[in-house]
Design a protein around this nucleic acid. Structure first.
Length: 348
DNA sequence: TAGTCGTGGTA
DNA sequence: TTACCAAGACT
């Protein structure tokens, strides 16, 4: 790896931070330079919450969840004391539900240790749900300590500026090395958030706004007109299709739902009972003899397969009670930990 | 290490 | 409609 000259590094830092001071995003969990002037300081709990929610999730999708969580549980102690199902219900619709389970475990661990988040990479990475990226992001944004954040934004910016040909994720160590070199030791928090803002608002995947980019003069891919060829990626395999049947059993405006296993897909969340999800429509008997009506199919795309559900509906026979689960009020679906796929089934 | 794990927006 | 994508972690 060719070392960057001191002058280049100094110029990149200054151009990026000047741009951030002018044009960086105002985000509710973020402390900007003018906020510090006004005496505001970052809340590590609020920063941690934002970082977990933003993993593989867009800012517009995560923001309302962040507000609701912070209003309902203003401190890590409050979150630690919350029942699991309350947290899962509030998380419903945000996806990647292992994050919610880890969120609860992490809050309880921090609360038990006195309520303060660790201000070190090792301490943060020892907590559930905090990996390499998130530890660095919290260290920078919450504690303004030197850190090197490498997320999808940084990967995209760096592979373009330096025309890194190695495909992701193999290029990660190379990118981390360069990113750490450029990171500003004097304003680590602002720097980390600036480089991610650059990726999110200027150096975008499809149509980068190179005309507005502070790093344009230094960008190798832009000079050659090949910005969108980077980052190089390993080709993905096609998503398989799976099918299943769900049984919507209703009684007096309520529907039978039950809890899924704690781990695995949609772990710990509730479900509308049904068959396995397999390549061909599975053979499956209804859980109870009844007159079954066929509703429109529900389609839903997960990370690694596309699902089509055949929906059958019946009124529960008089006197019949399921061996497990609950009768959920169809008018109050928000009060159950229901993932989006089952919400779709219940709003047909 | 490569597979698992959601959702909604956009071109 | 299809494909891609977004502040990744965990096993």
């Amino acid at each position: 790896m060719t070392k960057l000259s001191r002058d280049t590094i100094r110029r990149l830092r200054r151009e990026l931070l000047d741009w951030y001071d002018r044009s960086g995003r105002r985000l509710p969990w973020r402390i900007r330079p003018e906020d510090r002037t006004a005496g505001r300081v970052a809340d590590p709990y609020a920063v941690w919450l934002s970082e977990i929610m933003l993993q593989q999730t867009t800012v517009p999708h995560a923001t309302p969840y962040w507000h609701r969580f912070l209003r309902r549980w203003p401190s890590v102690e409050a979150l630690a004391a919350a029942p699991d199902d309350d947290v899962l219900t509030e998380w419903a619709g945000l996806g990647y539900y292992a994050r919610a389970r880890n969120l609860i475990a992490c809050a309880r661990q921090v609360a038990e240790q006195g309520g303060a988040f660790p201000a070190s990479i090792e301490g943060l990475k020892a907590l559930p749900g905090i990996g390499d990226y998130t530890a660095n992001a919290i260290l920078a944004a919450a504690f303004d300590k030197p850190a090197s954040v490498v997320d999808g934004n940084v990967e995209r910016v760096m592979t373009r500026v330096f025309r890194i040909e190695t495909p992701l994720p193999k290029a990660k160590p190379e990118i981390t090395e360069i990113a750490a070199e450029i990171a500003d030791p004097d304003r680590p928090g602002d720097y980390a958030q600036a480089i991610m803002d650059l990726g999110a608002t200027i150096c975008m995947p499809r149509s980068p706004a190179c005309g507005l980019c502070p790093w344009r003069p230094d960008c190798a891919a832009q000079s050659a007109g090949v910005q969108t060829d980077y980052p190089k990626k390993i080709a993905k395999t096609a998503k398989p299709a799976r099918r299943g049947i769900v049984w919507r059993i209703e009684r007096d405006g309520r529907v039978w739902i039950r809890k899924r296993p704690e781990s695995g897909l949609l772990g710990g969340m509730m479900e509308v009972p049904g068959s396995d999800w397999t390549a061909e429509t599975p053979e499956a008997d209804p859980p109870v003899p009844a007159i079954w009506e066929t509703l429109p199919e529900v389609r839903h795309v997960f990370t690694h397969f596309a699902l089509t559900l055949e929906v059958r509906r019946a009124v529960a026979p008089e006197g019949w009670e399921p061996a497990e689960g609950i009768w959920a009020d169809l008018d109050r679906l928000d009060s159950y930990p229901l993932p989006s796929v089952f919400r779709k089934v219940l709003v047909l």
